[in-house]
C-alpha cells in the first residue's frame, strides 16, 4: 500500500482551507489526486481537458458546487453550477454543447427550494445555449450534506485556431480582465455576515461563452483564457505565471472594482485581489491586437467593464508583481488558505 504523500504531521483532516483555491488546494490536488490519477490530459491541470476525438477537438470538464448559503444575492447554487461549467468549457476556447447534472440532496430540503434552483438552471442553460442531457439524483440523511451539492460536467467543441495554453504566455502579451472583481465573494459574505448594502451587491455569475464566441475570430491572437473564480484574480495570475515560466506585471489603478465592493473589503480587511468571482475571465492576447479585442469585449454586456490590466514580462519569472496606486511595486503572492476577515 502506498502511504499518503501529505505527511500526517501536517494535516490529519481535510480543512476548509484545502478548498480555498490557493496553495493548500494545489497541494491536495497534486499530492492526492494527480499522483494517483495522473495522465497526459490530467497533468495539464487546465479547467478543461482538450483532446482530439474522430477529427474534432473537444473540451471536457467537471465541477462540483457546495456553496453556502444556496440562495444568495444575485443567484443560487444551480445557476453557479451551470455557468461555472459553461465557463470552464468556454475558456478552453470551445463552444459548450451538453451538460450533465448530478444532485446530492440533504433530507429535508424544501421541494420549493429545489424547484426554484432547477428553474434557475433551466434559465441559465437556455441563456448559455446549452442542453442538460443527463443527470443523477441522490438523497442523503439529514446532516450528511449541507442542504444541496451539485456536480455538473460539460463537453464542447473547440473553435478553429484556438490553442489555449499557459506555455504560450510569453512577453509580448497584454492581460485583459473582463470586468469588475470581487462581486461574488462579497455577495456571499453579505448573506453570511449580515452586511447590508444600499445598492445590493449581487453575484456576477454569468455565462462567458457568448464572449468567447465573439472573440473566436481573434483565436490566433489569444494565447490564454481562464475564468477567475475562487481564490480571486491573484490566484489565477499566479497559476498562469508559474506554469508559463514568465512574470506578470499588473497595474493596481487599472483593475476595475465596484465602489461598494471596495468599501466592503475595507470593512472586513479583505484584499479584493483574492475575493471570488463567477462571471469574469482573463485573456492573454497579442499586444498589437489588445485594443481591438478590448473594444469587442466592451461592446458586450457581460464584459462592458473590461480593462487591460497588465502584461507578461521577462522579469521576476513565475511571479506576479503589481505597481501600486502610489507608484511602488509589490509582489502579489498566492494565498495560503481561505482569506479571512480581520480586525487587525
Amino acid at each position: 500500500m502506498i502511504s499518503c504523500p501529505i505527511p500526517k504531521s501536517e494535516y490529519e483532516n481535510v480543512l476548509l482551507a484545502h478548498g480555498g483555491g490557493g496553495k493548500l488546494t494545489h497541494q491536495l490536488i497534486e499530492k492526492i489526486f494527480v499522483s494517483q490519477f495522473g495522465n497526459d490530459l490530467l497533468n495539464e491541470l487546465n479547467d478543461s481537458a482538450v483532446f482530439e476525438f474522430h477529427k474534432n477537438k473537444l473540451a471536457f470538464t467537471t465541477d462540483s458546487y457546495v456553496v453556502q448559503p444556496i440562495f444568495f444575492p444575485g443567484g443560487n447554487i444551480g445557476e453557479l453550477a451551470v455557468n461555472g461549467t459553461v465557463n470552464d468549457i468556454a475558456v478552453a476556447g470551445a463552444r459548450p454543447v451538453y451538460l450533465s447534472a448530478g444532485f446530492i440532496i440533504e433530507e429535508g430540503l424544501p421541494i420549493d427550494d429545489l424547484w426554484n434552483i432547477v428553474m434557475s438552471m433551466k434559465n441559465a442553460a437556455d441563456k448559455a445555449g446549452v442542453k442538460i442531457v443527463t443527470g443523477d439524483t441522490k438523497v442523503v440523511e439529514k446532516g450528511k450534506a449541507d442542504k444541496l451539492f451539485i456536480n455538473t460536467s460539460g463537453v464542447g467543441v473547440v473553435y478553429d485556431n484556438f490553442n489555449i495554453s499557459s506555455r504560450n504566455c510569453k512577453p509580448g502579451l497584454s492581460v485583459i480582465l473582463s470586468g469588475k472583481i470581487g462581486d461574488h465573494g462579497i455577495a456571499i459574505m453579505s448573506a453570511r455576515e449580515n452586511l447590508e448594502f444600499e445598492t445590493e451587491i449581487v453575484s456576477d455569475t454569468a455565462p462567458l461563452n457568448g464572449l468567447v464566441n465573439a472573440l473566436s475570430k481573434y483565436s490566433v491572437n489569444i494565447k490564454m483564457l481562464r475564468d477567475v473564480t475562487r481564490g480571486g484574480l491573484a490566484s489565477v495570475l499566479n497559476e498562469i505565471a508559474a506554469s508559463s515560466g514568465y512574470g506578470i506585471e499588473i497595474e493596481e489603478e487599472k483593475i476595475p472594482i465596484n465602489e461598494q465592493v471596495r468599501g466592503a473589503c475595507e470593512i472586513l480587511g479583505l484584499d479584493p485581489l483574492y475575493v471570488a468571482n463567477e462571471g469574469k475571465l482573463v485573456a492573454f492576447v497579442d499586444d498589437e491586437k489588445s485594443e481591438e479585442i478590448l473594444s469587442v469585449m466592451k461592446s458586450l454586456e457581460v464584459s462592458k467593464d473590461a480593462e487591460i490590466i497588465g502584461k507578461v514580462v521577462d522579469e521576476h519569472p513565475q511571479r506576479v508583481v503589481m505597481r501600486t496606486s502610489i507608484g511602488s511595486k509589490r509582489i502579489v503572492d498566492m494565498i495560503s488558505g481561505e482569506q479571512l476577515p480581520r480586525i487587525c
Partner: peptide, 18 residues
Amino acid sequence: FGDMMRVPGSKDDLLSAK
C-alpha cells in the same frame, strides 16, 4: 475574530478544531 483562526497553539489551531 477571523485573525485568530489559524494561529498555532501547542498542537493545533481553531481552524483544525472546527
